[in-house]
């Protein structure tokens, strides 16, 4: 554990989507067991820069604080991650905090990640049930298969995999690894399978699976250790089989 009295914090700020970003430096009194959330909480209680100039309160978002909601994702010391599980004792006494770069900034550290949910809508990642009224038990499934689906289903839609993907930039509409993993998840469900072709078709369109450059950064950045590369490979295989199937007809 490093010995320090104060932490130097540099925050990339931006008042609104139209204005230019700028850096502001702060100083926060160190306490053991701090995480980036407690650092930001300290700064809103005492919004002053390192040289004691009054500063507006930094805008940032958080919710569950236990890495299960994905809200507080930001770039900390150059690495995209959740602020809640970024422990100061592991970061050192000089810390930089920036908003994610692949999503439009709303203000300061708040970004607009609604594209993630729009993609899910387009890819129909749901089980197409007849309704939510009582229709008896669901399909039986072996424990190993259930466990495999559970691992895919832990995605918190944080966007880390998109942040590190070289294929996602201003000139590309690539949906990213998380969305493709969701396609695999729902194509693996006995009822979800019913519309697997619709999902694969949507992935053939612009920004679909073709855009994956196989950099494999996604799987390393995923805080939930979801086998994203395996998911992409599996969906690629499904695409090929589907194409062969179509050709046969």
């Amino acid at each position: 554990m490093p010995k320090m009295d104060f932490i130097q914090v540099k925050v990339k700020r931006q008042a609104n989507p139209r204005l230019k970003p700028y850096w502001e430096e702060y100083r926060v009194k160190y306490r053991p067991y701090m995480n980036i959330i407690t650092v930001l909480q300290e700064l809103r209680k005492n919004p002053h820069t390192f040289d004691n100039r009054p500063s507006s309160v930094i805008a940032w978002e958080a919710s569950c604080l236990e890495e299960v909601c994905g809200t507080c994702t930001m770039v900390i010391n150059g690495r995209v991650r959740q602020a809640c599980s970024a422990l100061v004792d592991q970061l050192g006494e000089s810390i930089t905090i920036e908003p994610m770069t692949k999503f439009p900034v709303v203000r300061d550290l708040v970004v607009d990640r609604s594209v993630i949910f729009r993609s899910l809508k387009r890819l129909k990642t749901w089980v197409p049930v007849d309704g939510t009224h009582a229709l008896g038990p669901g399909p039986k499934m072996g424990p190993d298969e259930a466990l495999e689906r559970y691992e895919m289903s832990k995605c918190i839609a944080c966007g880390c995999c998109m942040e590190v993907c070289p294929q996602i930039n201003e000139r590309s509409e690539f949906v990213g690894a998380a969305a493709i993993n969701q396609v695999r998840l729902f194509n693996s469900h006995p009822t979800g399978k019913v519309i697997e072709r619709e999902r694969l078709k949507a992935l053939m369109e612009k920004g679909g699976i073709e855009d994956c450059g196989n950099a494999q950064n996604c799987v390393k950045a995923c805080p939930k250790e979801i086998p994203l590369v395996t998911s992409i490979a599996d969906v690629n295989r499904q695409m090929t089989l589907n194409l062969l199937d179509l050709l046969k007809k």
């Binding site: 089980v127 939510t132 499934m141 424990p143 259930a146 559970y150 289903s153 729902f186 009822t191």
Partner: peptide, 19 residues
């Protein structure tokens, strides 16, 4: 049962029932 139908990844018994 409904949640199971909707695809919630519940843990299961060796027979494939909900655990």
């Amino acid at each position: 049962y409904l949640l199971d139908r909707l695809g919630v990844a519940f843990n299961r018994t060796p027979e494939g029932n909900l655990d």
